[in-house]
């Protein structure tokens, strides 16, 4: 029983640690953030249920990605459509395979991103927050923040670009406190 308990908390740790990577993986296959969150939830449940299928020593993340892939396909099946963007099933499979290595070092990037976000101007960070924390369309956010949609798009473009540059630079310098 104690063994089970250890495995239990270890699994929670693993699942929690890999949430951004699993979400990223699902988003690659189905780039709709709101539905991707749903699929992530379902994936978490399955990861938990199928705990006994996971073999120690193998990559937890690879196993989680596999389950996320199957859950995404199941989601498409339920919604009776191929995918939000009309991706063919071959394309979804190709993306699933190619995403895995690219998402391998996401934890370091996430750390770097946290530091980079601190450097943003408050006003910019609020816009990024408004866009990423809800599934509201830009038009709604534009009304809420009293900015034009065009202006929001410009800010988001600029901020995403500078954040990506910042993340790449800090990874090159190895400046993360991970």
């Amino acid at each position: 029983m104690s063994n089970f308990k250890n495995q239990h908390s270890d699994t929670i740790r693993q699942i929690t640690k890999h949430q951004p990577a699993i979400l990223a993986y699902i988003l690659t296959l189905h780039p709709d953030r709101s539905e991707a969150q749903d699929i992530l939830q379902e994936t978490n449940v399955v990861l938990w249920q199928k705990l006994e299928d996971y073999q120690d020593g193998t990559s937890f993340k690879a196993w989680a990605f596999r389950i996320a892939y199957l859950q995404t396909l199941a989601h498409f099946k339920r919604k009776k459509r191929k995918s939000w963007l009309g991706f063919s099933s071959e394309l979804v499979e190709t993306l699933a395979t190619e995403a895995e290595p690219i998402l391998s070092d996401l934890e370091h990037r996430q750390q770097a991103l946290q530091n980079c976000l601190q450097k943003l101007a408050d006003r910019d960070r609020e816009i990024v927050r408004s866009h990423y924390e809800s599934s509201l369309p830009l038009a709604d956010i534009s009304r809420k923040l009293n900015r034009s949609v065009g202006a929001l798009k410009q800010v988001l473009f600029r901020v995403r670009k500078s954040l990506r540059t910042c993340v790449e630079q800090s990874l090159r310098k190895g400046v993360t406190d991970a």
Partner: peptide, 11 residues
Amino acid sequence: TAFDAMLASEF
């Protein structure tokens, strides 16, 4: 999309 996921995870 990975970058979007990371941002979404931060907020």
